[in-house]
Simulated scan of single mutants.
Amino acid sequence: MNKSILTRKLVIVLCAVSLFLTSCTTKKDVVYFQNAKDFETIVNTDTFTSRFKINDIVSINVSAYDLTAAKPFNLIVESGQNSTPIDYLIDTEGNIDFPVLGKIKLLGLTVEEAKQLFKEKLSNGYLKDPVINIRILNFRISVLGAVTSPGVYPISGERINILEAIANAGDLDLKGRRDNILVIRDFNGAKTYTRIDITNKEVFNSPVYFLTQNDVVYVQPNTSAISGSGGDLRIGQFLGYASFVMTAILLATRF
């Protein structure tokens, strides 16, 4: 066989193999909400609100027309010229130890339910028309795995959905599995594990579509990424060998 023809065939084969090894991602792997139809409306009637968990850190401020009467319910720590309100940690039994009122169980309540509870207790002989402000101070979520910017993200509001969490982390990279995202949640001291598929519009009906404080979102790498951890080295070796072979063939055809 003519040497030049043999060389061309080898080059074509080597290029084809290289393309095969380096191009594995398809549209099906990366597109979100693949089964959503044009002009389709999904009515989300979910009234999700975060509920207090064990180890939550909570700020509670009590106000009333008579500020002097409300002062015993707003403890502060003096540090030089600065004063800092005391925050409350929900203990393993779900309680906080609140001044004057004593132990109050917050575990499982929403912020609004907790406000109503305090209002009822304080209106019972302590304050007239009290105003209660409550915030969860340690509301944060962690996003790990095949995303652009993995990390821990503090949340300023009272809820966040999984799509917003992924957006905060810079979106999934091309090698992240969209159909098998794991949400790890702490529920009364026990861990729950739920998987979610964001290529399907049913994501909006998932029990973990809205995240709770301290949830962990793990994006699993796809098969090509896992095999690629060792495959990248093999591809590099292959291309190195291919380059050597092609160079040897080209040199041989010159003589």
Results as ranks from 00 to 15, higher is better:
138 N>Q: 01
254 R>E: 13
77 V>F: 02
142 S>T: 12
35 N>K: 14
157 G>T: 14
66 D>H: 06
170 G>D: 10
152 V>N: 12
253 T>E: 12
125 G>K: 08
185 R>V: 04
253 T>I: 15
171 D>F: 15
93 E>P: 00
95 N>T: 05
198 I>M: 09
50 S>K: 03
170 G>M: 07
22 T>A: 02
188 N>A: 01
205 N>W: 02
116 Q>I: 12
154 P>C: 06
172 L>K: 03
140 R>S: 12
118 F>Q: 14
23 S>D: 03
58 V>R: 08
164 E>C: 04
86 I>G: 00
81 Q>E: 15
250 L>W: 07
2 N>D: 11
64 A>K: 04
147 V>C: 08
45 T>V: 07
149 S>I: 05
91 D>I: 00
59 S>K: 12
78 E>H: 06
86 I>P: 03
39 F>R: 13
188 N>P: 06
244 F>A: 14
57 I>P: 00
13 V>Y: 05
193 Y>D: 11
7 T>L: 15
91 D>P: 00
195 R>P: 11
166 I>C: 09
30 V>R: 07
237 Q>W: 12
186 D>V: 02
173 D>T: 01
152 V>Q: 12
162 I>R: 01
132 I>R: 15
46 D>C: 12
59 S>L: 04
255 F>D: 00
10 L>W: 09
213 Q>I: 10
70 A>N: 11
247 T>R: 04
63 S>V: 11
144 L>P: 02
60 I>L: 10
186 D>H: 06
104 I>P: 08
39 F>N: 14
215 D>N: 10
2 N>Q: 11
183 V>E: 06
21 L>Y: 01
7 T>K: 14
189 G>I: 09
181 I>D: 05
165 A>V: 09
